[in-house]
């Protein structure tokens, strides 16, 4: 039986009017015919440049913004009719931790305030706040003013606020954007932990490619309001219009042997191209492009050994998510 996605969007559209002058404006498609399914328990990354439409899409999914077209359901609720129910069933962390954090209240008082606003059961409040403070390593700071703790800790406080009620979906809008390396690393660890331990579906926006690569089960690449590609990083690599390549460094190879080896390597299944560079022994190397590379690399090495070629080193060069992102955005869609 097919599992119903927690979020299912079809052809979702949001257009803003951008004012050029007092009497003139032009439409901007912030989200342009987006189709997207998100499944229970997954971490989906929305990757894109500033202005790509990531935050607009998140706000529509969270019921904070009314779409202009298309259809969509979040947790089974219609994005047009049931926006109040959607809002009451999802959590959100804004890009800056100071949103929703009152510097006049202590860390604990902040959580106590939001626990009531989010209608956390009275009997559960203290227990849940204690659990979260411990879980997010904030227990020793519970009586501190937010202004006196680091930005990373304030971001953890914002995450704690979003976890007070165990809503099934958590939206994180650029959760590490204003943090230093250590703070960002800690927050990423907590995101992984939240997903693993609470089974919460997480949708996060980021323009840090390595962050998407490390955290996300799937990545949706957005540009100019459209989702250009959406898949796991491994599948995005596979779909990329570029083959994985491997450089095999070797000893000196006579001209006749070189031609023979290239002919045999090129005949291997899945090999797209094969070339040789470097006349001198210390710089001689074969370069093989294949899809997928893993399945052919062993045979390629065996072929070279069969031709008595000394193999010194093997280096594979898989495209990074950054390559995929740039390729996708530049070619306006890889798949």
């Amino acid at each position: 039986m097919a599992v119903e996605p927690v979020i299912a969007l079809q052809q979702l559209v949001k257009t803003f009017q951008i004012r050029d002058s007092l009497f003139r404006s032009h439409p901007l498609n912030a989200v342009d015919n987006v189709d997207l399914d998100v499944h229970t328990g997954e971490v989906l990354g929305l990757l894109g440049r500033n202005g790509a439409g990531k935050t607009t899409l998140i706000k529509m999914m969270a019921g904070l913004l009314r779409p202009d077209g298309g259809t969509g359901r979040v947790l089974g609720y219609d994005v047009y009719r049931d926006h109040k129910k959607i809002r009451a069933s999802v959590s959100l962390v804004a890009p800056t931790a100071d949103v929703g954090t009152d510097n006049n209240l202590t860390v604990r008082q902040n959580l106590e305030f939001w626990a009531v606003v989010y209608d956390l059961d009275r009997q559960l409040r203290d227990q849940r706040i204690d659990e979260l403070l411990t879980f997010l390593n904030l227990k020793s700071y519970e009586d501190h003013w937010p202004i006196s703790i680091s930005a990373g800790m304030r971001q953890r406080l914002a995450i704690a606020r979003s976890l007070l009620v165990h809503n099934p979906i958590l939206f994180l809008d650029e959760p590490t954007v204003k943090l230093d390396a250590a703070g960002a690393h800690a927050v990423r660890e907590f995101i992984r932990k939240i997903n693993r331990e609470f089974g919460i579906t997480i949708i996060l926006t980021t323009h840090f490619i390595f962050e998407a690569e490390r955290l996300c089960d799937r990545v949706a690449i957005m540009d100019e309001g459209k989702i250009m590609s959406c898949d796991s990083v491994a599948n995005l690599r596979r779909h990329l219009q570029r083959y994985d390549s491997s450089v095999i460094q070797c000893g000196e190879v006579p001209e006749s042997l070189r031609r023979e080896a290239i002919r045999h390597l090129g005949a291997l299944p899945q090999v797209a191209s094969c070339s040789f560079q470097g006349e001198r022994a210390e710089a001689a190397q074969f370069e093989i492009s294949a899809d997928p590379l893993e399945s052919v690399l062993f045979d390629a090495l065996k072929t070279l050994r069969a031709h008595d070629i000394d193999i010194h080193a093997v280096d594979t060069n898989q495209p990074s998510l950054e390559d995929i992102f740039l390729d996708t955005v530049n070619s306006k869609g890889a798949s």
Binding site: K59, A62, G63, L64, R87, A88, V90, S91, L92, A94, T96, D98, V99, G100, W114, V117, Y118, D119, R161
Partner: peptide
């Protein structure tokens, strides 16, 4: 300007309570 309107609306409260 403080950015909290979204967070208030992401609650079961009516528009008027916040």
């Amino acid at each position: 300007w403080g950015g909290t309107m979204d967070l208030y609306l992401l609650s079961p409260l009516s528009y008027l309570t916040p």
